[in-house]
Structures are given as structure tokens and as C-alpha cells.
């Protein structure tokens, strides 16, 4: 019970100290707010980019058209060759007859055109639809397939994919660097606030030592103060994350952009905002505590 009373009194003393050095505390809190906001943006971006990339990868297929006159045997041979390629996740053979039927069913214009063909006439080509394991190696896979016998055309959206992935990677890396830099600045700033608190309370610390307060009880309020500065700094970013992301999700859904670009859509808020908030709170408190621990270790000589 004694330990709880000591912790309770330390928390009280930390709050008093935050208000006593109000401007300094505000500087630290503001810095945590900015950092955590960026961390939040970083997490949400990365999560969505990952999802979108996965979506693109799932949607992305290689379509190969076989030579016009091709025998059953040659198709079987092609199938076994495709099976040997590591980067191929799955493939599906679509015969030209199936394509013809599909086209007729899909669109009236196509149906009318196809009606003009003779009964056994089919200028279309047999094809395979291929899904790859790693979209980054899609170029190589496509080249391998193109070099195979009886393959006439290989089609996939390579340039768009490559560009998108590289943009996503750049955004991700830049965010990570910025966040790491800001975390360091925040740790330093909170440490500095605690250092000044320690100096301003030097006589009080001396008195505590002389009246027999244990070292851990002397240090505890400073560590709690760092924790509080970080934790208070996480409140606004958490609110912005929850409210802002939900708002962005809803307005994107309403605007219809999501419907047009099926792939580019935000993940559902419930999937991500709560875990992000938890991370922000944890990170804020941890950064605050690390900052104050450093200051206490350096400047609080007992």
C-alpha cells in the first residue's frame, strides 16, 4: 500500500511541476503532438499502401495468347512448362470458345459482331490467365513466358505497377526517416524540460536527500513527469486520428472515387484507428519516459 501512496504523491507532484514550468511543458507537449501526428500519418499511410499494393498484386494478372492453330497436346505441354515457373501462383486456361461465349454474353455489340462469324469460325486465340507470387518479379516471369514455344502475345500492366510500387516505397521510407528524426527531437526536448525541472527543484531535492527520502522516490516524480508529457501529447493526435481518418474514409466512400478506382480505397477505420491510437499513446509515453530517464541519470546526482 505504501508503494501506491508514494506513486500517488509522485503523480501529484509531477502534475504540479508541469503547471509550474508551463511554457516548457507546453513546448515538449507540442513537439510530441507534432511527432505523434506524423507517426499516425505514417502508420495510416503504410497500412493503406500495403493494402493497396496487395490489392493491386491480387488484381494483376499476366494474360498470354497462344498461337492461333494450337493442338491439345501443345496446350498440355505449355501447362506443364508454366507449372515449372516458380513465380507463378496459379494459372487458368481459357479456350477461344469460352472467350467467344463470354464476349457474346458480355456485350450486345460483341454479340452482333460474333453473329456474323461462320459457325465454326473463331479468329480468337486460346489463352492463359496467370497470377504471380511476387509482383516485383513480374517482368522476368513475363519474359520467360514470352520465350516459350507457341506463345504469341504476353500482356500485363508493367509500367504502371512498377511506378506505383516505387512511389509507395519512397513515401514509406521518407515517412519512416521523418518520424525517427522527430522521435529523437522529442526525446531531447522532453529530456531538456526534465533537466530544467531538476535544476529548478535542486534545493527541494537536497532537502529530500537530507530528510531520508530514498533515491527511487526522489527520481520517480521526474520519470512520471516525462511519461505524462508524452502521454498528454498523444491525446490530440489520437483524437485527430480517430475523427480525421473516419471522416476521410466516409467522404472518400461518398464521393464515389472508391467505386471508380476499385483498387484505391482506404481501409475500414475500425481495422486501424484503435491500434494506431494505442501505438501513439504507447510511443508518446515511452519517448517521454526515455527522455526523462536520460535527464535523471545525467543531472540528478544523489
Amino acid at each position: 500500500m505504501r508503494i501506491f501512496r508514494i506513486i500517488g504523491r509522485s503523480i501529484e507532484s509531477s502534475f504540479k511541476s508541469i503547471f509550474r514550468n508551463f511554457s516548457l511543458s507546453m513546448a515538449s507537449i507540442t513537439c510530441s503532438i507534432i511527432t505523434l501526428l506524423l507517426v499516425s500519418i505514417g502508420i495510416l499511410l503504410s497500412y493503406n499502401i500495403n493494402n493497396i499494393t496487395k490489392e493491386i498484386e491480387n488484381e494483376l494478372t499476366i494474360v498470354i495468347l497462344m498461337d492461333k492453330e494450337i493442338s491439345e497436346k501443345e496446350i498440355t505441354l505449355t501447362e506443364s512448362r508454366l507449372e515449372d515457373i516458380d513465380n507463378i501462383l496459379s494459372f487458368k486456361f481459357v479456350s477461344k470458345e469460352e472467350i467467344k461465349k463470354d464476349l457474346q454474353a458480355q456485350n450486345e455489340t460483341y454479340a452482333k459482331i460474333i453473329e456474323t462469324w461462320k459457325e465454326d469460325e473463331n479468329p480468337l486465340q486460346d489463352s492463359f490467365i496467370i497470377t504471380v507470387v511476387d509482383v516485383r518479379d513480374i517482368n522476368e516471369t513475363a519474359t520467360t513466358i514470352k520465350n516459350m514455344e507457341h506463345v504469341s502475345v504476353v500482356k500485363y500492366g508493367e509500367s504502371m505497377v512498377n511506378e506505383l510500387i516505387s512511389i509507395f516505397d519512397t513515401v514509406k521510407n521518407a515517412t519512416i526517416i521523418l518520424v525517427v528524426a522527430l522521435i529523437l527531437v522529442t526525446t531531447f526536448l522532453i529530456g531538456n524540460t526534465i533537466k530544467i525541472t531538476i535544476f529548478s527543484r535542486k534545493s527541494e531535492i537536497d532537502i529530500m536527500r537530507l530528510v531520508g527520502t530514498s533515491n527511487s522516490v526522489i527520481k520517480l516524480p521526474f520519470i512520471i513527469e516525462g511519461f505524462l508529457l508524452g502521454a498528454i501529447g498523444s491525446i490530440i493526435p489520437i483524437l485527430i486520428t480517430i475523427i480525421g481518418y473516419t471522416y476521410a474514409f466516409n467522404s472518400l466512400s461518398l464521393s464515389g472515387i472508391t467505386n471508380i478506382l476499385n483498387v484505391i480505397k482506404l481501409s475500414n477505420p475500425s481495422e486501424i484507428v484503435y491500434i494506431t491510437s494505442f501505438i501513439l499513446f504507447g510511443l508518446g509515453s515511452l519517448v517521454g519516459m526515455i527522455g526523462s530517464l536520460r535527464a535523471v541519470r545525467r543531472y540528478l546526482t544523489i
Binding site: R2, I3, R5, I6, R9, S203, E204, D206, I207, M208, L210, V211, G212, T213, V217
Partner: peptide, 21 residues
């Protein structure tokens, strides 16, 4: 060596409070 922002009572109680009484 008294704490100027604390009252007489609080100054005297200070050691005991820090011991967790």
C-alpha cells in the same frame, strides 16, 4: 532549508509523506 511554497504543516509532514506514510 524549508520549502518556501509549502506551509509549516506541509514542511514538517514532508519527510513522512516521502516515506509513504
Amino acid at each position: 532549508k524549508l520549502l518556501p511554497k509549502l506551509t509549516v504543516y506541509e514542511n514538517v509532514a514532508y519527510p513522512l509523506a516521502s516515506y509513504g506514510y
